[in-house]
């Protein structure tokens, strides 16, 4: 499944970039991320409790950041496996300045397997969009937070509701 889209975040590019590659921030922003530990340079092991509504699964896996060109682009590779199946993806994330805000353009390929692929095909697009929205909404809050403030907490569903309409324009194709 191809995932692509853009997201405008009203914070400056350096801050958005540093938020996007900061493991502590990522752990707070990746929906359901319970653990993100460095295992090497820009390589992390992660534990996710991901899902939508009552449909949830625990995934263990690795996150790797590559081709890092601060503050304009990098590549993210995710590989996770859990009881409901597996999830693999890689994508390019590009950051551009736009009137003092940051325009994030992402495009990537996500593969799912196992039960989630076998029974969830009608939901996968919606779920992918929902999680992307949650992630970028949280990143925006992080990037906008002042450095001396305690990190924001992300009530994903509420935040998602607030930010859902208008911000996301993306197309997802199988």
């Amino acid at each position: 499944m191809k995932i692509e889209g853009t997201q405008e975040i009203s914070a400056d590019r350096e801050r958005v970039y540093s938020a996007l590659i900061d493991p502590a921030v990522l752990q707070r922003c990746i929906p359901g991320c319970e653990k993100l530990e460095a295992t090497g340079e820009n390589t992390y092991s992660a534990r996710l409790r991901a899902g939508v509504g009552s449909i949830k699964g625990i995934f263990n896996g690795a996150v790797k950041l590559e081709d890092m060109q601060p503050p304009s682009r990098y590549r993210m590779i995710v590989d996770g496996k859990g009881q409901p199946g597996f999830l693999k993806g890689s994508g390019e994330i590009a950051l551009d300045e736009k009137n003092g805000a940051t325009l994030i353009t992402f495009s990537g390929d996500v593969q799912v397997g196992g039960t989630i692929a076998g029974v969830g095909q009608r939901m996968i697009q919606g779920a992918a969009k929902m999680m992307a929205t949650q992630f970028f909404t949280a990143i925006e809050a992080e990037a906008k937070a002042r450095p001396d403030e305690p990190p924001p907490t992300h009530g994903f569903f509420r935040t998602a509701l607030r930010w859902f309409s208008g911000f996301i324009r993306r197309s997802v194709a199988r």
Partner: peptide, 14 residues
């Protein structure tokens, strides 16, 4: 089957 070989019509819901 998708191009990875996942059987995406895996239940009678699909």
């Amino acid at each position: 089957y998708d191009d990875q070989g996942q059987l995406v019509t895996g239940t009678l819901m699909d």
